[in-house]
Design a protein around this nucleic acid. Structure first.
Lengths: 342, 342
DNA sequence: CTGAAAGCGCTTACAG
DNA sequence: CTGAAAGCGCTTACAG
């Protein structure tokens, strides 16, 4: 009667099976599979053949346990269905894969401040080598202090002051948009903003104000929305009543869609009566009732930069040496902007 | 001089640290952390306190290695930026998390047939307990035979005949849409389809044809698109020239947006001159130039069902006993449909 | 260039 | 109800 015989689930093939078939030791196989150079070409070939014949792939869990690295990046997002988040996610996945990293999704929906913090700290030691935050909803920057050694990068501009970040240059993008309208001859530009507690919304709002001020124009009262088409529609119903409104800069394309419909319903034509500019360049922007002039963000570049920032930290770089990367936006002129009716 | 002293990266706290502090053995800690009942309440409390004080969380890699399960679900998708994929992804993540599973993203962009197969088989043994396929682009059903024991579920209808699936009932959804137009008094209904090699596109196209045929109407020539707003626009330019066209059922909402703009440009009004119905109910559908009547798919339910299907297999159920789950769609009437002009 | 041994942190029978 | 021992599959010094 043997003692201590442990039964364990066999996950599949192990390094030993390959070693046996190739007639070498286990760690020669290890050397081959991890790409070490110190292996005689013939030996390497024999091992590689054996791996192929058996269909061997190394066990990630075992490697992770031994090395202390999971080769996994956590990706924190929230509103997957928004163009910006979705495209950034896609780009992060592609860039991570390129570097041999898997990406694990973390949805922070409904996560309270404290549980968010708890979550982040757990994740750090447990299941991932790094964290990319696209949007962290309710999380305060301080809660991230919990995991001070975790490689991290954000595109959430609320956290951008505290952590390595990759963010579109929304200020310049906004300036170009507002400037464009002024150059067309509009006497002022109205604005439908995003929510007041959103940093990117405030950045765009401030840039709009300052551009007007820079042109000697006192900014009109702004309308406050929440990024949604509905909020654009509701602001639009009121804007449509004001004959002085001839140009509107919207915080994003969805809002612009809502505005466009409200104007349409009120019988005001775009761009003849009112010019509209959005932000983001979502797929449908080009196919709005009137093709939408907008400011494109390069979400692909943002995703790549996020991965780069995070892997630099995995490689040893310190958080505070990394700072913020600003990606340029691109002004896209379509048909929703025109000179005002004289 | 000690021999064989191995240096290893310390990931953090281990079960032993907790055991020491609580004054128990390591596997009593294990029992507590895995929720076993065979622990005296006082002992449990002491252990839990120690875990809290230390901020201990179990090492997933170690557990995975030992148990042979990673508690990770692979999520294969492609066009993250599409409403359907994004919402399904989101729902999968939520449902998986609920069950204690992490979700790893797999983008199959540009993956050739063979590498796809290779990929799937590797993933299976290596890093995930199950695979949820939302869309598998170029992958033929046969390539999945490579991982016959991998728990799997799909919402890609091309694979639905071969693997456990959760799919919206597009046939009924289409019937309702076409029927609605006929009941409004339209003499026929035109159709802009998705690409010919897309199964869901063909399902909708066939249902459209059959509904017309069932009403004794010979289906007009369909226009073939590719799901995009642009293809809707291009078909729309031709449709707009035909005075017999009074109602169009589109394969999806994006296509309907493109069509709407083409009609707009041609001076044909919606719904006065032409009624339009889309499919999906994307966020902007309600805020099209004319609020879009459409067929809503319940992506949330699909995501939940995918996770359920996959976890049943993890629990021992056989693939072939699972079959296909069909989720109902919902007809959403808005302003883009009306009786024809007499 | 190759191999023997130890150990990453956990859980699984088994014994008490 | 609790503990001692073994081992999941891998990699890391170390020795040769």
């Amino acid at each position: 009667m043997t003692t201590g015989a442990t039964s364990t689930r066999r996950t599949g093939l192990s390094i030993k099976d390959v070693a046996r078939l190739a007639g070498v030791s286990a760690q020669t196989v290890s050397r081959v599979s991890s790409g070490s150079t110190n292996v005689r070409p013939e030996t390497r070939e024999r091992v590689e053949l054996a791996m192929q014949q058996l269909g061997y792939t190394p066990n990630r869990a075992a490697r992770a346990l031994r090395v202390g690295q999971t080769h996994t990046i956590g990706l924190m997002a929230h509103r997957f269905e928004r163009t910006g988040e979705a495209l950034t996610m896609k780009s992060v996945v592609a860039a991570a894969e390129q570097e041999g990293y898997a990406v694990t999704l973390i949805d922070v929906v409904g996560t309270s401040e404290s549980s968010w913090a708890q979550r982040a700290s757990r994740l750090s030691e447990q299941a991932m080598d790094a964290l990319v935050i696209i949007r962290a909803e309710g999380a305060a920057p301080e809660s991230l202090a919990i995991a001070p050694t975790l490689p991290i990068a954000v595109s959430d501009s609320r956290l951008a002051g505290y952590l390595p970040a990759a963010i579109a240059d929304q200020t310049t993008g906004t300036q170009e948009a507002v400037q464009h309208l002024l150059e067309l001859g509009h006497r002022t530009v109205h604005h439908i903003s995003g929510p007041v507690d959103s940093v990117p919304a405030q950045v765009r709002s401030t840039a709009w104000q300052q551009t007007l001020a820079g042109a000697g124009i006192r900014p009109p009262q702004q309308f406050v929305g929440d990024w949604s088409a509905r909020s654009g529609y509701e602001s639009g119903r009121r804007l449509a009543l004001d004959p002085d409104v001839s140009a509107v800069f919207c915080c994003n394309d969805e809002t612009a869609f809502g505005l466009m419909r409200a104007l349409h319903e009120a019988g005001r034509r775009v761009p003849d009566d009112v010019s509209i500019i959005g932000f983001d360049d979502i797929g449908l922007a080009e196919f709005a009732a009137v093709p939408l002039t907008t400011v494109r963000q390069d979400f692909h570049a943002i995703g790549e930069e996020l991965v780069r920032l995070v892997l630099m930290q995995v490689g040893g770089a310190e958080r505070h040496t990394l700072g913020r990367t600003t990606l340029p936006t691109q002004f896209v002129q379509r048909a929703s902007t025109a000179p005002p009716r004289s």
